[in-house]
């Protein structure tokens, strides 16, 4: 079951085309990475999903039916540009934001207290937001995003500006929410967190979606049949099926990167190597999301 599907979304601002025929499918209960360089159109797509903007063309399906105004109550959104009312007290502010999401006052109060206790910040209830540190304010913002128990949470660059301790806390929360069956859209250009958290990704570049699918499959597709080998002794020529990309001697051992050019498999390469050298390590080189990202974006740049 897909929780959210966008179908052929177009959006222009004047002459500038922000989104050009973008269709993405977000399966339920996944962590979906929405990737792309700055200015690619990620935030515009998110604003269309959160109904801040209307698409010029195309439609958004939520839980299998067209997105409605009331659905904002089932979506939690932590924008990249986020803040709080400075002159308001923490508790009142969370209460206000929760009520705007359609929660009753009593229910919201109970949930806010539970979250604040969980984050060990219950003593801040009566504090003014302007007296909070940046890290403290971020915890409050995160609570505001998830308080109304949305079925879809959208986090736009959630770790930017977080200190490592808070970033860890939020990361653990994201994983826990996934366990509860919540879907998370995670927009970022930091590949290390994508590598760690995301199940699915979509890559947007220059207003177009250029890649989408489960992370595992994408990596599979972008594998180049290349192997990292650590061995002792020099390789003196391999069959033409194998292409040595690099060799480097480190502390008496040699690291070689070898690509298989033909239909042969890793065992064939291993056989060829064993006859010549002593193999200590043999690992398939799997491309990182970062490499795929850079490769795809650069391809786009050469069009």
């Amino acid at each position: 079951m897909n929780i959210l599907v966008t179908e052929h979304i177009h959006k222009s601002f004047g002459d500038f085309k922000a989104l050009d025929d973008v269709s993405i499918t977000i399966p339920e209960n996944t962590i979906f990475g929405l990737l792309g360089p700055n200015g690619a159109g990620k935030t515009t797509l998110i604003r269309i999903i959160t109904q801040i903007l209307m698409a010029d063309q195309g439609k958004v399906m939520f839980h299998g039916r067209p997105l409605e105004l009331e659905d904002v109550h089932r979506i939690g959104y932590l924008p990249e540009e986020r803040g709080l009312y400075k002159k308001m007290k923490v508790g009142e502010q969370l209460l206000y934001l929760a009520q705007l999401k359609g929660m009753s006052k009593a229910e919201a109060t109970k949930k806010i207290k539970a979250w604040m206790e969980k984050f060990d910040i219950i003593s801040w209830w009566g504090k003014n937001v302007e007296d909070l540190s940046k890290g403290m304010a971020q915890k409050v913002q995160f609570i505001a995003t998830v308080l109304h128990e949305p079925s879809l949470i959208i986090l736009d660059e959630p770790f930017s500006g977080f200190d490592p301790v808070n970033a860890n806390l939020i990361r653990d929360e994201i994983l826990e929410m996934k366990k509860k069956g919540i879907t998370i859209i995670f927009s970022t250009h930091r590949m290390e967190s994508v590598e760690e958290l995301c199940d699915h990704i979509a890559l947007i570049n220059k207003s177009k979606k250029i890649l989408e699918g489960p992370k595992k499959d994408i990596k599979e597709t972008y594998k180049s049949n290349t192997f990292n080998v650590l061995h002792h002794g020099k390789v003196n020529g391999l069959p033409a099926d194998f292409d040595t990309l690099s060799t480097e001697e480190v502390e008496g051992a040699i690291h070689s990167t070898i690509q298989i050019k033909s239909a042969l498999g890793p065992n064939d390469l291993l056989k060829a190597l064993i006859s010549q050298v002593e193999v200590h390590e043999f690992v398939e080189k799997i491309p990182s999301m970062n490499e795929i990202f850079i490769q795809k974006v650069q391809e786009g740049g050469h069009e």
Binding site: T50, Q51, I52, V72, I75, Y77, L78, P79, E81, R82, G83, L84, Y85, K86, L97, L100, K101, Q141, A144
Partner: peptide
């Protein structure tokens, strides 16, 4: 202007 500079605005208009 306060809502804009404190960056609360986008949080609010994702609800209203």
């Amino acid at each position: 202007i306060e809502e804009k500079t404190s960056r609360i605005i986008e949080v609010i208009i994702s609800s209203v």
